[in-house]
Design a binder for these strands. Structure first.
Lengths: 178, 178
DNA sequence: TGTGACATGTAATATGTTACATGATTGA
DNA sequence: TCAATCATGTAACATATTACATGTCACA
């Protein structure tokens, strides 16, 4: 079974069609909510792996002097992608969510009440900024783009809305305590 | 600066007081929404690192024939923990959220409409089960436990509620499309 | 002509996983 | 007594990061 990054990379190649490793890296780097940096050291070996397994095919594109390799998903690749997406409906995978903000709140005891209140507000600001970003991304997909792209962006917005609401609760609770 | 797992482990030792590596592993393994498995191969080297840096101290506890080492956070450890928690208010960290369910929805194009509808419903079931779990955890903290423990559990519940609401939207949108 | 984006890749390092290895204690 | 839990740790492997290395192309 594909790992998370492998699935995401293969999925990108499926969605955008034949593209270079460089473009895949760029997508990962520019993705607003990304746990991956799209580093060369991860992407190139990963793509070699996918190619060896016959999940992608590479064609040298002699458009210019640059050593350009266009990557395309194969039929086996589509099968593997399908299997990976379908594996999303398990308790274990659903539980593999991680949110560094919640992790931090969990360890707020380490701070003084004043520090807690200050930090909660700062986190809230950072989160609100991030929410704005995801809202803009949603809006840009509303006009052009498929229904599924819209649903993807909607997920980010709803998640960040919930995080903002949560942090407001935290700020309120900390104020009441004082 | 501490990494995520280092911060979490140090935070656990801070919160529960002197405890063994085994207990830390158990907490990580049993944590409902965990991205880490608490494997021995990650925890023991990590604790060695923290000890070498003077962030924790170990005392051999000759309670019985077992080679038991009680780990306690030091003053420097508390400082490091504080710094790590406070580093949570940046755009970069706030963006480091990851949700395998949303990732999967993003690549739904790879499936047929029927498969999409089926999977969305299955994911919803898995998520609802997971939401129940986090609600129970919240309830158990309501009676006993600090306000901060309550806030931590509340974060999980609110996050999972948002995820469920989102997936219901997805299910609805997919049905309308057909 | 030089800077930034395009394009590929490797090396050293960090950090996590599974599987293995060992032994003591508790309780049915 | 035997299985589960407590308790520590290592070895092999997988996978990601940063930093390095090389070269082309577009455009100001």
């Amino acid at each position: 079974m594909l790992k998370e990054l492998e699935g995401a990379v293969l999925g990108y190649i499926f969605k955008v069609g034949p593209c270079t490793a460089y473009q895949v890296r760029k997508l990962l780097k520019e993705s607003p909510s990304s746990r991956w940096r799209g580093s060369a050291g991860s992407i190139y070996p990963l793509l070699e792996r996918l190619e060896r397994q016959g999940l992608i095919e590479a064609n040298d594109d002699p458009a210019d002097g640059r050593a350009k390799r266009d990557l395309a998903i194969t039929n086996n690749g589509k099968k593997a992608l399908k299997a990976w997406v379908k594996a999303g409906a398990t308790r274990e995978l659903v539980a593999e969510i991680s949110d560094p903000v919640r992790t931090r709140v969990f360890f707020f005891d380490a701070l003084t009440p004043n520090e807690q209140a200050r930090l909660a507000k700062d986190m809230l600001s950072a989160l609100e900024e991030f929410l704005s970003l995801s809202r803009e991304s949603l809006k840009s997909r509303e006009s052009s783009g498929s229904a599924l792209n819209h649903l993807g962006a909607l997920g980010a917005v709803m998640s960040n809305q919930a995080r903002v609401t949560y942090l407001r609760e935290v700020v309120k609770a900390l104020e009441e305590k004082r």
